[in-house]
Computed example of a mutant assay.
Amino acid sequence: MILKIQQKEYNIPITEEDQPDLANIPAFYQKNNGNFWIGLDDNMVVGSIALKNIGDKKAVLRKMFVMQEYRGKEWGVAKGLLLNLLDWARQHHFKEIYLGTTPQFLAAHRFYEKNGFREISQKSLPSNFPVMEVDKKFYCYEL
């Protein structure tokens, strides 16, 4: 699902090999109070979101994707995934959540901003933030 959205919908030249985190989700995300969630419709994965602990009560939101036909308020997939992540982050005492995204994801930018994320400069990121090559726009959410 993630590769299909990246490659087909947004024409981002990224491969599975460029994303080793997807090959071992438990080791990459589900440790040190991080986690990975999926949205399902009748056992079909229609969305994903991940939280990675980067230390000092800070985390990174990654891999937020929702299949095109499941986007929007009527489905609530993106909002539900984000609410789960934020609830988990509060329960595990995170103070800030950062994310990087691509300029092409205009609807995602509006979604993040509407849900309390504020745009920040790359210089404002924590020094241990894992910047991906495609990341050009950055956000922070304070819990």
Rank of each mutant, 00 (worst) to 15 (best):
R118V: 13
F117H: 03
G34P: 02
K31Y: 11
M67C: 12
W37L: 10
R62M: 12
D41S: 11
L85V: 02
E96K: 15
K73S: 12
T101N: 08
G72I: 05
F94Y: 14
H109E: 09
L85A: 11
D56T: 11
W88N: 02
W88A: 00
A27D: 15
I97N: 06
M44Q: 13
V60K: 02
F65A: 13
A78D: 07
Q104L: 13
D42R: 08
W88Y: 08
P26F: 05
P26L: 03
L83T: 14
D41T: 04
T101V: 05
G47T: 04
N43M: 00
D41W: 14
K31I: 05
Q68A: 12
I120Q: 00
I97W: 03
R62S: 08
S124T: 04
L82F: 10
F28G: 00
K114Q: 10
D42W: 07
H92G: 07
G39A: 15
A50N: 06
P26D: 07
H92A: 08
L85K: 00
F94G: 05
I38L: 09
G80P: 04
I54N: 03
K123F: 08
L85G: 08
Q91A: 14
V60R: 10
K95W: 10
Q68G: 13
G72N: 05
S121V: 05
G76M: 11
I49P: 04
G34K: 04
L83F: 15
R90S: 03
R110T: 15
I54R: 01
A108P: 09
Y29R: 09
K58V: 00
G72D: 07
Q104F: 06
A107G: 15
D56I: 05
F28S: 09
M44A: 03
T102K: 00
L40K: 14
K63A: 06
H93V: 08
W37C: 10
Q68K: 14
A59C: 09
N33E: 03
K57V: 01
N33L: 06
K58C: 12
I49T: 13
N32E: 14
K63F: 03
E69M: 12
A89F: 01
Y112A: 10
G72L: 10
V66W: 08
L106V: 15
I54H: 03
F65D: 01
D42M: 02
E113T: 08
N35R: 07
W75L: 05
M44Y: 12
G55I: 04
V46H: 10
D87Q: 15
L83Y: 13
G72P: 08
R110D: 11
K31V: 15
I49G: 12
S124F: 02
R71N: 01
N84Q: 13
N115V: 06
E69Y: 01
I38C: 09
G76I: 03
N32R: 05
K57W: 09
N115Q: 05
A27G: 03
S124C: 01
R110I: 05
L40W: 07
R71Q: 03
L51Y: 01
Q91C: 09
G80H: 13
V77Q: 00
L81K: 01
G39Q: 11
L83M: 10
I54G: 02
L61V: 10
P103W: 04
G80N: 08
H93F: 12
V46S: 10
E74L: 11
I97F: 00
F28N: 11
L83G: 00
H92N: 14
L86T: 00
W88I: 06
Q104M: 06
